[in-house]
Design a protein around this nucleic acid. Sequence first.
DNA 1: AAAGCAGTGTACGTTACCGTACTGAATTTG
DNA 2: CAAATTCAGTACGGTAACGTACACTGCTTT
Lengths: 255, 255
Amino acid sequence: MTRAFARLGNTTSLKSGIHPFPGQPVHNLILGGLPRREREAVAAKLQFIEFPTHCVLNEIAGPIRYGYFIDSGLASILNVTSEGKSVEVGLTGKEGFVGLPLIVGFDTSPTRAVTQIAGTAFRVSARDLKSLFRDCPQLLKLLHRYSQEFALQITQVAACNRLHRVDQRLARWFLMSQDRLGGSSFLLTQEFLSHMLGTRRASVTTAAGVLHKAGFITYRRGKVTIEDRAGLEKAACGCYASLTRQLKQWRGKPR
Amino acid sequence: MTRAFARLGNTTSLKSGIHPFPGQPVHNLILGGLPRREREAVAAKLQFIEFPTHCVLNEIAGPIRYGYFIDSGLASILNVTSEGKSVEVGLTGKEGFVGLPLIVGFDTSPTRAVTQIAGTAFRVSARDLKSLFRDCPQLLKLLHRYSQEFALQITQVAACNRLHRVDQRLARWFLMSQDRLGGSSFLLTQEFLSHMLGTRRASVTTAAGVLHKAGFITYRRGKVTIEDRAGLEKAACGCYASLTRQLKQWRGKPR
DNA sequence: AAAGCAGTGTACGTTACCGTACTGAATTTG
DNA sequence: CAAATTCAGTACGGTAACGTACACTGCTTT
């Protein structure tokens, strides 16, 4: 459990390009929710990047140099203990932003943010972000709202990690990932899942076996496929349902 | 584990009075951090209350009618699962505010907030709070900062609850409570601690026994006394240390 | 084709904690 | 003062998960 993040130490090859945003549609919901004026102001400071898997965006106790508006793929926010064990506390996909402490001017990260499924993002330097906040009230507002949503997610995951079995948590994880990614199969190893769930790799194998035998998923060498979503929802604990219910309720608010 | 919150259902006797703030000093750090103008504007909308223990401030999935600036005592933020089990995800004392979703306009609570140690607070209605936000940028700023601090707390607690033993978590809890309360003994039953830690009451007894035998605490019918804080810090896992380190680091920021 | 390796399956003794239940001591109530 | 109640301590069988280790199986590399 201790060594597997070793190769993540170096912030591996981020292919960055210059495209905010030439015609291509933007999937990120925060950027997408900005009024035109702010969107243009923000776009001027963004840098488009493609990230591979297992790339560290922010290191624990390290400086937060950039904020990331995830556009596709998936990033995990992990807490890493002094003994080197890790647990995922939150997942961020195209609905969100990585680097939340920046929105109140805190510039060190209490967590490790690591890309989980390869994808793309728009990144902005901490400095530029700060100056954008002066002119873009809606940007700030949306980020603060996302921050509350994210806190809700941590809250739910915290309880779930304490109270429920590995197979239930694994089911929840698949559901949450699918929500943020779309599609029904993604590439990830059990080794990595074990870091997310804060268990042994062997426990993930067993738990995946349970879900597999029930016909909900198939798993083959780093590729999981969700075969029966409804089944997974039954296999998961109530945490998934109450999380989505609350998110829906909040998002349904007039504004 | 299921029944113990029964009597909390009714929001028991909140003795409320009218004192924002006639001479008495205000301990709450958020209120205390406001510039005079804002402080007066806010004070006009506050109501002073004394709360007993085990009083529900916000119910899970319920409306958030009031925000509470805790002035003394302690409130816990709990997640309660559909099976009725509960885990504490955060603690709020005089440094904080209960009702965080309100600061972005969300008015239902994803968690249960319950008073843990009797004390006092200034409460403000959701409606008044909303209107205050228009004129009090510093209030909003301090609340947003607190929100990030609180998220950090959840993050740390989430990992701790997953990875560490009951006795370690119990030690952490005592330390966190003492930080927020001052003093070295507080009134609380093992039954309640079990809800906080998300374990059986019997496990709390055992864990408390460990800390007692080591000479760190004494426990007698609902009253714990911290006898050796340094010892407790060693008995706790690294979570407590890294939480306080990060908080200190953030709070030390120029602004 | 052989070798190497990453990823998965499985096993086994150990540990922490669970659910439950009963006891006794301290405190409150009648 | 006796009775009732609240709270802490303890016990016991059961279970989920742990640490560790090893074998198997597809891919990749040479």
